[in-house]
Write a protein that binds this DNA or RNA. Structure first.
Lengths: 191, 191
DNA sequence: TCCATATGTGTGTATAATGCACATATATGG
DNA sequence: CCATATATGTGCATTATACACACATATGGA
């Protein structure tokens, strides 16, 4: 029994390694500057490269606060706060007080922002249709289903941002001294 | 006939939109600082957050040159050049002249670098096993197959970095003036 | 009700990552 | 042999970024 289980285990390990490779390829593709450039060009508006992803996220997941946005892009909330402010100046998004929580100032896409995103959507869909041109409909359905499920499971399994575990200060003793890159560094992530 | 075709089209559009949503979720998950922090902690070495993804890429795709690396992470080659130099100083990777092209100085993981990556791999696999704990074996196989195929197709369909189209200078007339965010800006990408 | 703690937002500030221009070395094709 | 393209690395100015810190609001317990 241990034999078959080990076979299973190595098979799963291989599969997970392949999955990681696919993740790296996808992240690499998303990181290509040319991709954003083309989509920005489709937007028809001279938009800063850093502001572009935020606009898309706000239009897609808005109304959304700065903290949630910062968590998505992996940057400090202060950085995102300034970028959102610039995006507001451009007129593509607007801020409004949160309905249930008055601490948050939700960001929402304006009509112009939504129109811009629709142009971007058209370009993106054209790009994806080109990439998946020779795909079977059944396979696309399976990809969307499985990848959506994986994205949810992966995001949920990831460790959340530890705020301030002020209690249990005795825990993790022995980690003092070492500059374990505690929290600083602008690592983009992707490994 | 047009009716059924339109139904098909809207269905595909919906699926592509869902696929894009999954991509955004995955990129958001990969961008989480905590994820890299945990993996770096597993590495057992105080490693800079920005250098960590490079080490993983070099160990996985090396020997690899600076340009290819820069293309993967979406940063300028000069930036990556400096980071790789720092990684070399740390002893985790080494540089060596390319075998077929003596212009390149390939980066390869040293024994210590490989050992570090193995520790990271263990932690990553544990993380992924946790995320996919309740997945059927068949479903995992399907996910790996389809996502691998998608990653390849997506990466291939993306526009490549236009070097210098010095010829045909008459093309694209009318784009002058507008600061179309031509190429600058450190947009991270992900939309 | 009041208070302690947690969380969301924004600003000042110093640091360092980043992109660009440029130089050099090698490759490639005519 | 030469023109062009590509790979690498360095000087340099810009600015994105993270960290403190302050303030507003929320939340739950005494």
């Amino acid at each position: 029994m241990t034999s078959s289980k080990n076979v299973q285990d190595t098979h799963i390990s291989d599969q997970l390694r392949r999955l990681h490779g696919a993740l790296l390829d996808i992240v690499a593709a998303m990181n290509r500057p040319r991709r954003d450039e083309d989509l920005i060009a489709a937007a028809g508006i001279p938009l800063d490269g850093a502001l572009f992803p935020l606009l898309v996220l706000i239009e897609r997941f808005g109304p959304i606060g700065v903290v949630d946005l910062a968590d998505r892009v992996g940057r400090d909330h202060s950085t995102v706060s300034r970028q959102v402010a610039r995006l507001e100046e451009s007129g593509l998004i607007a801020r409004r007080p949160g309905v249930t929580d008055r601490r948050v100032r939700d960001a929402v896409a304006t009509q112009e922002g939504r129109a811009t995103c629709r142009r971007i959507d058209v370009a993106r869909e054209r790009l994806m249709r080109g990439a998946l041109a020779d795909w079977d409909g059944k396979e696309l359905d399976a990809l969307v289903r499985l990848m959506g499920r994986f994205a949810a499971a992966f995001g949920a399994a990831l460790p959340q941002d530890r705020a301030g575990s002020l209690d249990a200060p005795t825990g993790r003793l022995g980690d003092a001294g070492l500059p374990t890159a505690g929290k600083n560094g602008r690592g983009d992530g992707g490994a």
